[in-house]
Amino acid sequence: MLSLDFLAGFTIFLLALIMVVSMVPGLLAGLESSGIDYDAVAYRTGVILVEDPGWPVNPPWEQYGRDHKDEIQRMGLAVSKDTPNILLSTKVERFFENASTEDPFFTEDDYHNKVIFGDYPYSYNISLSSGNDLWQTGDPLPPGYGYIRRVVKIKEPSVAEINESISSAYTIDPSAPEWQNSTARNFTVRLDFGHLLDPTVSPAYRIDPRIEPVNVTITNFDAYLNNTSYDSATLKNVTFWKRDTTKPGADPAPIPFPYGTVDSDLYTLNVNGTQALHSLKPEVSVNSSISLVLKPSATSLLPLDQNSILDIRFNFEDDPPHTNITGIHHYDYNMTNVTCTDLKTGVLEVAIW
């Protein structure tokens, strides 16, 4: 009887031991080397950054200010979900904005909650290099960490440069009857959203004022002066006008805008190459150049859609007129009208530990 009891007990003990041993690997799975886990988190973070445009999309998250930062759910850098590995420069600038200052736009919690995700308080270092440009945020790298590197392209905004080579196309005859008694001259840059937002154009090469700046630069302005007796002309104001293409024959209507307020978050206006910023009612003398950058945050304030045409009017006024500039410059895909910068190659690196 003793031998049978011993044999039965020993058998039960062996079965229990086998069951415990078989369960141990599962119990210790979370205690294995953390390198694989960190690599996975780094990979996931890299995917979010280079393959996702972020959320919200319209208006895009990079246009949200500090007061609405909590509404941002993800901070992806891709131009769109259809263009993986192609990043938008405005998203890149916002993502790394003031990262090295004492009051950065995004905090560590923002990067944890909107890019890295997960309950574990990971440390991170995220960098993007392209040529001589380097953007970086996060902590210094430790001896060991999870890591991912992605080769990317960066889409820069287009630029319309109006210079002396096309001055004759925008210069009027001041002796014409319709200009005899007028002291005003205006020059228009036209954006046809129906043409610009053509769905057949890849988002990687599309001119989209909703997500990237509109950059208009007039150089060698002296080529547009009335005659050699004038060395400058007065830029009175810059105004916005809208036309609805669904209403043929309708006149363009002025768009209300804080024209008299200098707001670099909405636009920048520089005259004669100086760094001083002007409002859209500058009333300043122009002798060499004008540079207007209309930012997406400003475009989002204008009631524009795919049926809209936006006119940006540069209005000059002197008595007698000092300039003969007039006409319409189309901001479109014609390379003589707008210069579209080639996609720049960059390297995104994500380190997690």
Rank of each mutant, 00 (worst) to 15 (best):
K247H: 14
H68P: 01
H330W: 03
P199V: 02
D342M: 10
H330Q: 03
F316T: 02
R185E: 00
L310Q: 00
W135C: 09
G9E: 07
K91M: 00
L304Q: 04
S123K: 11
N181Q: 15
I148L: 06
E32L: 14
V24E: 01
E317A: 14
T245N: 07
L343Q: 01
I207F: 08
L141D: 00
L343C: 07
F96A: 10
Y38D: 04
Q63L: 00
V238H: 01
P143D: 06
N307Q: 12
P209M: 15
N220L: 00
I255V: 07
M1H: 13
V284W: 01
L310C: 05
V286C: 02
S158A: 05
W55D: 14
Y124V: 06
H322Q: 07
L141A: 03
P209K: 15
P254S: 02
T261D: 11
D263P: 11
N98G: 06
P143C: 06
H329M: 11
A16W: 14
M23W: 04
Y230H: 03
I325Y: 05
L302V: 02
S100W: 13
T274L: 09
S130M: 06
R313A: 02
A160Q: 08
S34G: 05
N186E: 13
G260S: 12
N237K: 15
Q136I: 02
K236E: 14
L2P: 13
D319Q: 13
L225S: 00
N272S: 13
I290E: 08
P25C: 01
F96Y: 07
V92M: 11
H330E: 15
V214H: 04
S22E: 07
A223D: 05
D192L: 06
F106D: 13
S127T: 02
M335H: 14
P142A: 09
G346T: 04
Q180K: 12
V92L: 11
D173L: 04
L197R: 12
I126C: 11
L277G: 06
W179E: 07
N334Q: 12
T345P: 10
Y122W: 02
V24S: 11
T274K: 15
L196P: 12
K91C: 05
F187M: 08
I154G: 09
N227R: 01
V262P: 03
P60S: 11
G9Y: 07
P213Y: 11
N98M: 09
W61L: 09
I211M: 00
I36Q: 15
L292A: 02
L28Y: 00
D39I: 02
A223C: 06
T341G: 00
P25M: 08
G35T: 14
D332W: 03
F95M: 01
E51V: 14
W353P: 13
Y170A: 07
L2G: 04
F240A: 11
P142R: 10
V115T: 05
D103W: 05
S165E: 10
E102S: 09
S264I: 07
V24M: 08
K69Y: 01
I218K: 05
I12P: 02
A298S: 01
